[in-house]
Amino acid sequence: MLQLIALFLKQQFKVTFASASQKSENAADLKALGIDEVSIALNASSFDVFVQYLKPTIVVFDRFMTEEQFGWRVTESCPKAIRILDTEDLHFLRKVRHQQLKKGTKFTNEVLLNSKDAKREIAAILRCDLSLIISTYEMDLLKTVFKIDENILYYLPFLFHKIDQNHIKKWKPFKDRNHFVFIGNFFHKPNVDAVITLKKEVWSTIRKMLPKAELHIYGAYLNQQIQQLENKKEGFMIKGFAENSQEVIEKAKVVLAPLRFGAGIKGKLSEAMICGTPSVTTVIGAEGMHKNIPWNGFITNDFEEFSRKAVQLYQDEKYWKNAQKNGVEIINKIYDKEKLSPLFIDRLEEIQGNLEAHRTQNFLGNLLQLQTLQATKYMSKWIEAKNKL
């Protein structure tokens, strides 16, 4: 979201950030960027007044739940505004994978197609003029399994500056790096599961081969379940919130991310590449992130192999440096901000100049805008009326 905001600001857009959530102490300082921050209420017609006064030309919904709540209001109050859904990742994909993992049953496309969460999120995608899809895997899933028209989808991964030689020269060399690291906020269930997996399946094997190595676990919203895993004698260190995530990753020798479920592309792994730190992860961890370019480390779902490859990266400088080079290639070829940004702006301008025709072609989206199918709208109105009693 911050990358999108920066992109809009570069285009001289006036940006207003409206949120129904309470602002946390770790929130980004948007006012310093010249952005108006507005508090909005759920299930309240006060939003209608706000958005009618604002008269936006583009509205970006942060995830499908926001579109469910406010999308119909934007449609009624600002019918000419382009409605964009920033999926972040496909939430139904992550949720279904988690459910199947807990059940011990196989993940299939049929399970996805029967998911109520999938139906909600797909409906939000269909209602919007454009949905931003962060992963090549998810882009393919939407087109092939859910038969979504590519005309309302747009592949937009993270936007990074290229890694040049000056950047590389600033990285700590192999000999000056120590320990393994995992980083990720613990509101996010895949991160909680990954740390438990590190404790139960991975770390004891690594520690036997590297008795002086340590694993440092960083992340916001630390809970008791994670805190109780700390064992300083075994080098399993719970560090908590990191003021500067890149500083933490740059000091480490290897990033470990045994993700057993999830979706989208993983910030911890792209950040590892930016910091020149190789990583070991799972198939889901690397999913949709590197196309045909070799990974900056190793990918496996076998945790014995995961542990051995982590140790090899930790000990073998040649292997480590080669993995680091792969990370540079992935960032420079797939996430190039200077290449991706103007293409996205061009797509927005194309839709803006042809909005009526664009919407006419989206028949299923038009169908979902019919009043008889707008359950979320009337539920919101009912809640608002009830709250006034």
Rank of each mutant, 00 (worst) to 15 (best):
254 V>R: 11
368 L>H: 04
42 L>Q: 11
69 Q>P: 01
271 E>T: 15
286 A>P: 04
130 L>E: 05
226 I>L: 01
220 A>Q: 13
261 F>D: 03
281 T>A: 08
154 Y>H: 14
355 L>K: 01
177 R>V: 09
284 I>D: 01
5 I>R: 08
217 I>S: 06
107 F>I: 01
89 D>Q: 12
263 A>E: 04
323 A>Q: 15
215 L>V: 13
386 K>L: 11
321 K>A: 14
114 N>R: 07
164 D>G: 13
61 F>Y: 15
54 L>A: 13
34 G>R: 10
196 I>D: 06
236 F>T: 08
3 Q>F: 08
98 H>S: 11
156 L>P: 08
4 L>H: 12
385 A>Q: 12
362 N>C: 07
188 H>I: 00
8 F>Q: 05
229 L>I: 12
212 K>T: 14
272 A>K: 03
270 S>I: 12
273 M>D: 15
308 R>T: 07
301 N>P: 05
376 T>Q: 05
57 T>E: 15
177 R>W: 04
292 N>D: 15
335 Y>P: 03
182 F>E: 00
306 F>C: 03
102 K>Y: 05
158 F>H: 14
374 Q>P: 05
92 F>Y: 12
300 T>H: 10
163 I>V: 13
198 L>H: 03
338 E>G: 08
111 V>W: 11
222 L>A: 05
351 I>T: 02
376 T>H: 01
303 F>E: 10
305 E>G: 03
254 V>N: 12
240 G>Q: 10
370 L>T: 03
87 T>Y: 14
313 L>F: 08
142 L>G: 09
348 L>P: 01
91 H>E: 04
18 A>H: 04
312 Q>H: 04
71 G>L: 10
194 A>N: 01
169 K>R: 13
336 D>A: 10
341 S>Q: 06
192 V>G: 04
232 K>L: 07
130 L>V: 02
178 N>D: 07
95 K>R: 13
346 D>K: 15
221 Y>G: 01
196 I>M: 15
257 A>Y: 07
6 A>V: 06
17 F>K: 10
214 E>M: 00
112 L>N: 03
56 P>Y: 05
116 K>D: 13
52 Q>W: 03
256 L>T: 07
290 H>P: 03
116 K>R: 09
27 A>M: 04
62 D>I: 13
172 K>S: 09
119 K>C: 13
189 K>D: 14
112 L>M: 12
